[in-house]
């Protein structure tokens, strides 16, 4: 099967703490709707860029797919195996195949461990590594991320941000996984370093035959790194498609707003009228109908009553908007701004 990962109706709610009084009075527990009925597929050797702003649920989605959080409902089918119902002990074997790189290089490395121990740690969870093969694995992966050999005995604080992120990537690769969740891996880095790490990630994907779920809030990065894009808003997927298609012919007003809001390197192309106003609505009590309707410049009555279906509008290009076809007919992004 060409699909490495298939996510079906995946939902993750975080219950808010209820006091004893609430329980006595029989009040329903309130939930934060972090991820709501998300469905998509990730093909082998592909990079799917998951784009969203704060409150979109993109990080929670990444972590839930990795089973670092138990899904509230829905299915995760990884390499033809349903993993959402597995116990922790059964998940262990599968964890070799899926790893994660976090956003903050400082907090993702234990400051009290040497680099060698940090990178070997994943190996220690599995018995089939002895000292020698472990050393080889570590050296190989260190070379792949272009860190010098003498890094092994050093501590994380002796490295710069970009180098720390390389260590984190090395750790994620040491088990030779098939799938990597990259949670905003360059957001905390300086721009000049960011480009280095993005290049590295791309090269590694070819060498290691990896599939990436690249989570970011920056649409520009997604253009460089991803084959396909998935856009999230308030826990829901609003658009999925090939990168070029989504960026040039967005089929959802939110995607359009995102694209327009990104500042360009050209002082003559200022964003005179910011496309979106207001803030994300309550995650505990999402709006009825389409969750984007309070801020959508094209909202109609149907948007406030009926939740739009996430459907395939054009081959391979999905959208959750009642009026996706209308957007399809509109001219490409540059002119769609007006």
């Amino acid at each position: 099967m060409n699909e490495l990962l298939l996510v079906e109706d995946l939902t993750k709610y975080f219950p808010l703490e209820s006091t004893i009084l609430d329980r006595v009075l029989g009040r329903r527990t309130l939930n934060v709707h972090a991820v709501d009925a998300v469905t998509f597929a990730l093909h082998r050797n592909e990079t799917l860029g998951l784009v969203g702003e704060s409150g979109s649920g993109k990080t929670t989605l990444g972590r839930t797919i990795l089973m670092l959080e138990r899904p509230t409902s829905g299915k995760i089918i990884f390499d033809s195996q349903e993993i959402s119902g597995l116990k922790e002990s059964e998940l262990r074997k599968i964890r070799r195949e899926m790893q994660i790189v976090f956003q903050n290089p400082v907090s993702s490395l234990d400051p009290r461990m040497r680099v060698k121990d940090i990178v070997t740690e994943p190996l220690r969870a599995f018995r089939d590594f002895d000292g020698k093969s472990a050393d080889e694995a570590v050296n190989r992966v260190l070379e792949a991320v272009k860190l010098p050999e003498d890094s092994l005995t050093k501590f994380p604080h002796e490295f710069s941000g970009g180098q720390k992120q390389r260590i984190a990537i090395a750790r994620a690769l040491v088990l030779n996984p098939k799938f990597l969740v990259l949670d905003e891996p360059t957001s905390a880095l300086d721009s000049s370093i960011q480009a280095q790490i993005l290049n590295l990630l791309r090269a590694l994907q070819d060498d290691y035959k990896l599939s990436y779920l690249f989570i970011t809030h920056n649409i520009n990065i997604v253009k460089f790194t991803s084959d396909r894009i998935a856009v999230m808003y308030m826990g829901k997927l609003v658009e999925v498609g090939e990168t070029k298609d989504v960026l040039e012919h967005p089929l959802h007003p939110y995607t359009l707003a995102l694209i327009v809001s990104v500042p360009r390197l050209d002082p003559d192309k200022k964003i005179e009228r910011p496309p979106l106003h207001g803030e994300v609505s309550s995650m505990i009590n999402p709006p009825a109908g389409c969750r984007f309707n309070p801020r959508c410049p094209y909202a109609q009555e149907i948007c406030m009553t009926t939740e739009p279906e996430f459907r395939e509008v054009v081959t391979g290009h999905f959208s959750a908007c009642h009026f996706a076809e209308k957007l399809l007919q509109a001219s490409p992004t540059e002119r769609a701004v007006e």
Binding site: E53, I219, L258, S261, I271, E272, R273, P274, P275
Partner: peptide, 11 residues
């Protein structure tokens, strides 16, 4: 800030 909020704040 989010990029959509940033656009507003810059304006």
């Amino acid at each position: 800030l989010d990029v959509t909020t940033q656009a507003q704040v810059l304006q």
